[in-house]
Design a protein around this nucleic acid. Structure first.
Lengths: 190, 190
DNA sequence: GTCTATAGGGGGATAGAC
DNA sequence: GTCTATCCCCCTATAGAC
């Protein structure tokens, strides 16, 4: 039972890392198996199909984000600190072997992944965007963020640039990603 | 000879569309062959390997962009119109079956494509960013664009958000992409 | 829970006829 | 230039032993 949980969690961890590194269609059961020192079939025992494995990865990713934003250590932060925390998530991905955002990876592969994963991708993206829009609105009302128009519109700009920035950094280097973050701070806080 | 050119060009066109739709590792020679009504081997005659095909697609894409920006019909445009033209390229991709930017697609697959394609991706991204930065600087000097900091920094924000915006739109709809563009116009022109 | 063994399909690529 | 035929590899997935 505890051994089961360990393997299952290890598979999830590796699958998540691989999806952010190579994409859903860019890794195989063999990658995970060899890394974990088990055989192909062992993975199928825990996750009957690759589609199920991918779905579990995204579901856990979503749950983790909701857990974070509902935790007082984030929820009670002032808007500026909340945003810095959010930017930090993406900076950490970049620092962690040049990973990209899971949502961005799945959106790029949108037309070559199973329908259930597309649905998971939509849900994840919605949740990221909703939280960001709410945070921007909160900050503008508090007078610390400055932007015009609908908060959701500004949120879509920021979210898309963080996604795209992590990708851009693969071609042009980490500085490119930090430039995106710094420019947002300039634009919002001035 | 003319028949050769026709087939070769048709392969390039289809491969480019497929890379923007499904990614480099998301399409196969079989896709192209069946669509064109030829056999697998015919494609290998024109492009010895998939790597060569992908490289030719990106090279043509780069050449086309350089041709555009050096043409008087774009080169002589005022900065605001230049930027609108650039945004229009991405809007057209979105309208064309939800394609994403070729650079973004390749960056997401960066760790699962051949080295020669990675080099092509870097070159393409550099060229897009350089042109955008120069245009932003030109507009700021002319007093029509308003932003603070290095033009390349602002350019990296805009480019990454266009890339990411096309991807976001796959999950949340076309409005999400237009929101990104509109927000940029607000931010720059106010 | 994990193994061996294998099925069954799709992928890129090549040889040689036409 | 395009075809048929085929090779070989990697993939996901399953059956049944341990």
């Amino acid at each position: 039972m505890s051994k089961s949980s360990n393997t299952k969690r290890a598979i999830l961890n590796l699958a998540e890392a691989l999806m952010q590194d190579k994409g859903f269609n860019g890794f195989s059961y063999a990658h995970i198996a060899s890394e974990l020192g088990v055989k192909n079939a062992a993975i199928h025992y825990h996750f009957p199909s690759k589609e199920a494995l991918g779905g579990a990865v995204v579901q856990r990713y979503r749950d983790r984000f909701q857990l974070w934003v509902n935790n007082p250590s984030v929820k009670d932060l002032p808007p500026v600190k909340k945003l810095e925390w959010f930017f930090g998530i993406y900076s950490d991905m970049r620092a962690d072997k040049g990973k990209v955002c899971l949502a961005g990876s799945l959106e790029t592969e949108f037309n070559v992944i199973p329908e259930s994963l597309r649905a998971q991708t939509k849900a994840l993206t919605n949740e990221l965007l909703s939280w960001l829009a709410a945070t921007l609105e909160e900050g503008r009302r508090a007078g610390v963020f400055h932007f015009t128009g609908d908060p959701t519109r500004k949120a879509s700009l920021i979210l898309s640039s963080l996604q795209g920035g992590l990708q851009l950094a693969r071609a042009l280097g980490t500085d490119m990603f930090h430039a995106v973050v710094e420019q947002h701070k300039q634009d919002l806080l001035v």
